[in-house]
Write a protein that binds this DNA or RNA. Structure first.
Length: 599
DNA sequence: GCCGTTTTCGGCCCGACTGTTTTCAGTCG
């Protein structure tokens, strides 16, 4: 059984949920959640580490006990600890805590006092008015639980980052237009540029917080107001997206921005660092605390505030350089910052060209001339035209004859565009058996060979891996495009051995794509980070199907930044002549070799 | 259950808001 990191993490989280309902030591519960995070964030399959006999307790948040448990899980597919707990607590109780407003304590009481074990049973009891008979439960709680069940059933997916971008812009403007509002920022996973966001965290500076909160709850797209206090409110928009707003003072704005940007794991580590240095860190600032002073109820701004106006100030007081939001996931960035070894993250300006785009020769909306002009307008030194091959008939994919015709037109078009170098390329399908969907003779007319899978997503993992490796090691290929085939919130990645493919890409000098399209973002941040660790060259491109799609490039760059990618890791940061030399020298193991014919 | 240039034991992040409490627990982020 080949267990994936995601499955291991899910089981650890399940143990945590059930332990919590049992009323276990909260720090023990946290330990399981922390370990789950480590597993989830590992680009390398944990099963490979186990197979290699490596010591898992070397990983952060995993000690001797969890190392043993995870090893057992990988080897046997079973987790004795979980089975033990599931004998004591009905497993279905874990789902109850996923209902908004219902946590482990009350789930336990519902079970023990009313015998409720499932969401269905809970709904029945709530409708029958039985919940309100419980000490501490009232009519409002009952109504809130019913609403929470409804939302759980609606099973709302996380919102794609690009969708969040379009929702955020008018809302931020609405708040900024309100009298007395000095600034509005979006924090949270949105600011960290995660591929999806669960909710939006807005921060504002304003003279009269309560008035801003009221204004916020009256935004035309607000469907429900979950809570609204003097400085904070939570609403749900008609799109289903939850939005939190906090209104703050300038003196604590940086601390709040830091705090609400997260991630939670990054914050916890920073707070511990603050404590070690004799401070208290909260969203109100960094405060010097007197030794031993631990009054039970204190003013949140008591003590001496030593930083808080800006993020830079807070990091500096903690002995750290400012850390870019995309890196704040507790994947070693605080340690790197401590040693002053933060990477110089790639930016959009580092890219000198876009190496995947489509035209009317297959399924693109714009002509060769329009796409090339648009690339030139964006200041690129080069671009590559990568229309589909014939196997993808629905896109009007080209065979060798069509490719030849396209190249004749392209020769004319490039004459008119001396300001940009155009690579002859093609997005060639990897067929079911791993062969490429274009004859070798035609492949040899290409400057860049880009390959991808668009069919037979449901092959067994071993066969899918073999298929991809066949292409990657063929000696004909420069770029492996959207390697997993996933579409965010729509299609899961097809199963295959990513680790094997990345090793092969490294060996054969094949660049692996971070597809910038906000629906793909493929590779994702975790795999891109793994690729970078292995020394695999990445390429960031848009897969544009229209000229306006070229502007989506920043999504790819943002994911790359989350993977700590530097300019040197990316093929299309190379100047034109260096890129051409590189293409000539590649693939290193080419049996017959493909040669770039143009300079 | 993890972790350790003060510790192998004793710590483990901080605050807002709600509901049903007459002083606070539970939940959330």
């Amino acid at each position: 059984m080949k267990i994936e990191n995601g499955e291991i993490a899910a089981l650890l989280l399940r143990v945590a949920d059930l332990l919590e309902i049992q009323g276990a030591n909260p720090f023990r519960v946290r330990a399981y959640r922390n370990a789950a995070r480590t597993v989830e964030a590992s680009g390398e399959p944990i099963r490979d580490l186990v197979d290699a006999g490596e010591d898992l307790s070397a990983l952060p948040a995993i000690g001797d006990d969890l190392a043993k448990q995870i090893t057992e899980l990988v080897k046997t597919g079973k987790l004795a600890r979980l089975e033990e707990i599931e004998r004591a607590v009905p497993p279905s109780l874990a789902e109850l805590t996923h209902i908004g407003g219902l946590g482990p304590k009350r789930a336990q009481r519902l079970w023990k006092e009313l015998g409720i074990e499932t969401v269905d049973a809970l709904e029945q009891a709530a409708r029958a008015g039985k919940l309100a008979t419980l000490e501490g439960f009232g009519a409002k709680t009952e109504a809130k639980i019913l609403k929470g069940i409804e939302e759980l059933r609606a099973h709302r997916a996380r919102t794609r980052l690009s969708d969040a971008d379009t929702i955020v812009a008018p809302l931020v403007q609405y708040l900024k237009d309100f009298k007395g509002v000095k600034s509005v920022d979006v924090a949270g996973s949105f600011r960290r540029r995660r591929e999806t966001v669960g909710d939006l965290d807005l921060l504002a500076i304003a003279a009269k917080p309560a008035a801003v909160i009221r204004h916020f709850t009256k935004y035309r797209r607000v469907k429900d107001v979950d809570l609204a206090g003097d400085t904070r409110a939570t609403v749900r928009l008609d799109s289903g997206l939850q939005v939190d707003l906090r209104v703050l003072e300038p003196a604590s704005y940086g601390a709040a921005l830091l705090y609400f940007t997260g991630s939670k794991a990054h914050n916890v580590k920073l707070r511990n660092r603050a404590i070690d240095a004799g401070y208290r860190l909260s969203e109100y600032g960094l405060f010097r605390v007197k030794k031993g002073a631990k009054e039970p109820k204190r003013d949140v701004t008591s003590g001496t505030r030593v930083a808080g106006k800006t993020e830079e100030e807070v990091y500096a007081k903690l002995g750290l350089p400012w850390i870019p939001p995309e890196m704040r996931e507790d994947r070693g960035e605080i340690e790197a910052a401590t040693r002053n070894k933060l990477p110089r993250l790639i930016t959009v300006d580092d890219l000198r060209g876009d190496l995947q785009m489509h035209t009317t020769w297959s399924d693109g909306q714009n002509s060769l001339d329009e796409m090339i002009s648009a690339c030139a307008e964006r200041g690129y030194e080069y671009c590559a035209i990568t229309d589909h091959s014939k196997a993808l008939a629905i896109t009007g994919g080209m065979d060798a004859k069509a490719l030849a015709r396209q190249q004749r037109e392209l020769a004319d078009v490039v004459e008119r565009h001396p300001e940009i170098h155009v690579f002859r390329s093609m997005e060639i399908d990897i067929l079911k058996d791993g062969a490429l969907d274009l004859a070798d003779a035609a492949i040899e007319t290409l400057d860049i060979v880009l390959v991808a899978i668009h069919s037979h997503f449901d092959l067994p993992a071993a066969q899918q891996t073999k298929r991809i490796l066949e292409a990657v090691t063929s000696g004909k290929v420069h770029i492996l495009a959207h390697p997993t085939g996933r579409l965010i919130n729509r299609r899961e990645p097809y199963p295959f051995d990513m680790e094997a493919v990345l090793h092969a890409a490294k060996e054969y000098g094949v660049a692996v794509e971070i597809n910038a399209h906000p629906e793909r973002l493929d590779l994702d941040d975790v795999h891109a980070m793994r690729a970078r660790e292995l020394g695999v060259t990445l390429v960031i491109d848009t897969d544009a199907h229209s000229t306006s799609d070229l502007d989506l490039i920043h999504y790819g760059v943002e994911q790359a930044r989350r993977a700590w990618v530097e300019p040197k890791d990316v093929l299309n940061t190379l100047p034109l002549d260096a890129l051409i030399r590189r293409l000539h020298g590649q693939p290193p193991k080419a049996p017959s070799g493909i040669r770039s014919k143009r300079r």
